[in-house]
Amino acid sequence: MSLISPAAASALSLWLDHQRALKGAAQNTLTAYQSDVADFLAFITEHKGERQGLAALARITVTDMRSWMAATRAQGVAARSLARKLSAVKVFYRWLAEREGFEPTAVLSVRAPKFQKKLPRPLAEDSARALIDTLEFQTQTPWVAARDVAVVTLLWGCGLRISEALGLTGVDAPLPASLRIVGKGGKERVVPVVPIARDAVDDYLRMCPYSLEPDRPLFRGVRGGALSPGAIQKAIASARLQLGLPASATPHAMRHSFATHLLDAGGDLRAIQELLGHASLSTTQAYTAVDTSRLMEVYNRAHPKA
């Protein structure tokens, strides 16, 4: 941050505190925000030839913004990553403009570069079942096999993120009829636990050689510490190779599959949004690879005037 003026550095720090305390931003989000905005402020310093105080930052022009975007792309940054950086800068500028009383139109009016959004690729239902079944044979240690099956069953059966599944502790066992999950940004949701997931976790707990402690992770690594996401990713990668499934068959694909299979079975899109913990329905739409005709079907069935 040596290229950034003390006033700008202080403003960035205050903004991050604001995002953490009032917006509930996750630590990963805050880390990305800090890096993206700091890089932008450093560029402006070099571009202008001097450190930029808050008054100078209020005078940033559309041309300045385009110069930053061009320089960032020239460094090999992909359009998707640049769009994320621009989003962070805009969020910072909205806050700064309100705090300092200036008009941020020059920053907010800049359009993000276009890029092809990659839609998630859920597994077919029979492939998801086969993947879970095949996990049992990826290790010669029975309790480890039961553990991997339990974790992946939670991803598919309850729509948990892998971090949420691995964040469960001994106090959550035996699994109740529903789990209270704290997801991204501290957003809380209640997730029903299907019997197959509860049974899989029970099987693992009966076989696990480590004692169940309320404040320790529910899922353990082979040495007794917290299970890492990499161990589950490795087990799934091995299973998908045996089944001839594509590289897109990942732990997160099981969460995608949960949503898609619920929708295919007649589930309500809004209810699925709540189960996944999405703030935006458009995110849920992408997860489930919903096309316009399917959305209209849901609309026509649910709208009171339909």
Results as ranks from 00 to 15, higher is better:
D215P: 11
G76I: 05
Y204M: 03
A78G: 08
E297Y: 15
R161K: 08
S228L: 10
C208H: 01
F40G: 02
I272N: 01
K118H: 14
A79N: 07
R20M: 07
Q233V: 08
G101Q: 07
A286G: 14
D172L: 11
Q140D: 13
R223T: 02
T31E: 15
A58E: 03
E274L: 15
G221K: 05
K234V: 08
R206Q: 10
E98V: 11
D17C: 13
V149F: 07
A265L: 11
K90T: 08
A249Q: 05
L175F: 06
R20G: 01
A259W: 01
W68N: 02
A11G: 09
I44N: 05
K48E: 14
A58P: 05
V290C: 13
R147N: 00
T105M: 11
A302R: 07
L243G: 11
K85N: 12
S10Y: 12
F92K: 01
P113A: 05
A79I: 04
A9Y: 05
A88S: 07
R51E: 12
A97L: 03
A11T: 08
K187C: 12
A306L: 13
A259S: 08
A279P: 04
L166G: 04
G183A: 06
F219E: 03
V107E: 01
G157V: 09
L86P: 00
R255S: 07
R206E: 11
T31K: 14
A302G: 09
D64G: 06
A26R: 01
Y93E: 10
M69G: 06
L168R: 09
L155H: 01
R198S: 01
L16N: 03
R223V: 04
A78Q: 09
A130Q: 03
R66E: 12
L14A: 15
S178E: 10
T141K: 12
S238A: 15
R73F: 10
T284Q: 08
A74L: 10
T63D: 15
A11C: 11
T29R: 03
R240K: 02
A231V: 12
S13A: 15
P195K: 10
D291A: 08
L262E: 05
G224P: 00
D264R: 15
E136C: 13
Q34I: 14
K118A: 13
Y204A: 01
R270Q: 14
H47T: 07
G170S: 09
F258L: 11
E50K: 11
A259T: 04
R73P: 10
V194E: 11
G277V: 04
A21G: 11
K305C: 13
L179Q: 06
Q242E: 13
P304R: 05
H303Q: 01
L243P: 09
R180K: 15
L218T: 00
H252L: 03
L155C: 02
R84D: 08
D133M: 10
L241H: 10
D215R: 13
A79T: 04
L119R: 06
T288F: 07
P251V: 03
T72E: 07
A247S: 14
A271K: 14
F258I: 09
A247K: 15
A235F: 02
S163K: 12
M65C: 02
P195M: 09
R255E: 06
I4P: 00
E125C: 11
A237R: 06
